[in-house]
Design a protein around this nucleic acid. Sequence first.
DNA 1: TTGACACATTCCTATATCGGCATGTAAGGT
DNA 2: ACCTTACATGCCGATATAGGAATGTGTCAA
Lengths: 109, 109
Amino acid sequence: MFNAVAEPWRRQILDLLRDGERPVNDLVDLTGLTQPQVSKHLRVLREVGVVDVRDVGRQRLYRINGPALKPIHDWVADYERMWSERFDALDVVLEDLKREHEGDGGNGR
Amino acid sequence: MFNAVAEPWRRQILDLLRDGERPVNDLVDLTGLTQPQVSKHLRVLREVGVVDVRDVGRQRLYRINGPALKPIHDWVADYERMWSERFDALDVVLEDLKREHEGDGGNGR
DNA sequence: TTGACACATTCCTATATCGGCATGTAAGGT
DNA sequence: ACCTTACATGCCGATATAGGAATGTGTCAA
């Protein structure tokens, strides 16, 4: 899963699919890759479940399966506090609480 | 960057470093990897800037450099609307607005 | 049914990566 | 000076992966 999106071309393909489903040839034109290349990358993305396919005539329309990316989001979210200003504000509150507690007369033990 | 955290062991090392900085041998004990293995993974993490080092005596204390993970967070955040309930709620609001607008007597053009 | 079109798969080669092992290097301790 | 500790690096073989060229498969059109 992480590995699938570690490939720059595959991330670009996903970004292109964000506008909606597309046939393979669209992705070939938009990326400048060869057709086999695109098919191979799509296969990898399919195998980890991050894209789905739908057959329409002789075309195969690919679309994103969003929830498959949730594990990545959840993982990196655990680190968000290390740079997010939102959490900086939370830190201030926690600092205040801590100081308040220390000043309340001594150890709570 | 994406590639660096695509490795399961490297994600585990990062998770271990979330508690604070640690010398290499700690990581060796906690992961069960060999020492060269850990050093190599730390090297990769260092090269993409996701960890920093500090020399203390003959130890090298590694710590996380959080902001280096922001690109991953930002990338996946663009897809969050595809599964997040928060955005589902937003969709409902937008649907309501749309229906309301359609029912207001016709084309606003 | 023959040919063109859209796409998938296979075969091949080059490069990257991981793991294991051995060795190098720098900082204490005696 | 010598040994140990803590870590990094180099070398090796095995496996994975990306790219290119050719070929296979299913669908439409005439």
